[in-house]
């Protein structure tokens, strides 16, 4: 027998005991009418009480069920609200992450620009101080000088891209290390 069933039987133990008594009385014979009447009155009283208690238990049970339904509805509403808040948080988080990424990219871009500028100055000095005199010494064709300078200018963009990518990788690696 399950515990719950056992408990519910215990709840009505007194009533069950009285029913048993009433059944026993029924099997007995040779009793006075007054005794029968007394037993019958007692049975009616107990039955009356039982009806009253059954009414109470029913209405309390109904109210508890109603309360449970209300709590359930409230939980459902709160769950939906939490779900919505969670979704909004995810969206805001993504917006924040995008903004952070853009800021990092801009910072890396500025840093890369500075480095490329320094490289450009270095290459310009190299071109003016070393390459140009060497070309002028070995050939009279001025296009070679122009071509070398144009090559340096054209190289600046790929250098900028490489530096930017390198810096971005460095930044991401640092961020991963910080997260770990």
């Amino acid at each position: 027998m399950s515990n719950k069933k056992l408990h519910s039987e215990e709840v009505f133990q007194k009533e069950a005991d009285f029913l048993e008594h009433a059944r026993n009385v029924m099997t007995q014979s040779g009793k006075d009418e007054a005794v029968w009447k007394e037993e019958y009155k007692s049975l009616c009283d107990k039955y009356d009480r039982l009806i009253g208690e059954a009414k109470i238990l029913t209405s309390i049970s109904d109210r508890l069920h109603h309360k449970l339904n209300q709590a359930n509805d409230q939980l459902k509403t709160q769950s939906e609200e939490i779900g919505k808040i969670n979704h909004d948080l995810k969206v805001n988080n993504q917006i924040l992450q995008d903004t952070i990424d853009q800021l990092v990219k801009a910072r890396v871009g500025r840093k890369a620009g500075t480095i490329v500028l320094l490289i450009a100055v270095g290459l310009f000095m190299l071109s003016e101080g070393l390459l140009e005199p060497l070309i002028e010494k070995n050939t009279e064709n001025q296009y070679f000088v122009l071509f070398s300078k144009m090559s340096i200018a054209v190289l600046l963009k790929p250098i900028d891209t490489v530096v930017e990518k390198y810096l971005m990788r460095q930044t991401l690696r640092k961020k991963d290390e910080a997260l770990l």
Binding site: E53, K55, R63
Partner: peptide, 12 residues
């Protein structure tokens, strides 16, 4: 609910 429960007990 608690008020009504009290009223119920009152009846019996």
């Amino acid at each position: 609910d608690m008020q009504e429960s009290g009223e119920d007990f009152k009846e019996i």
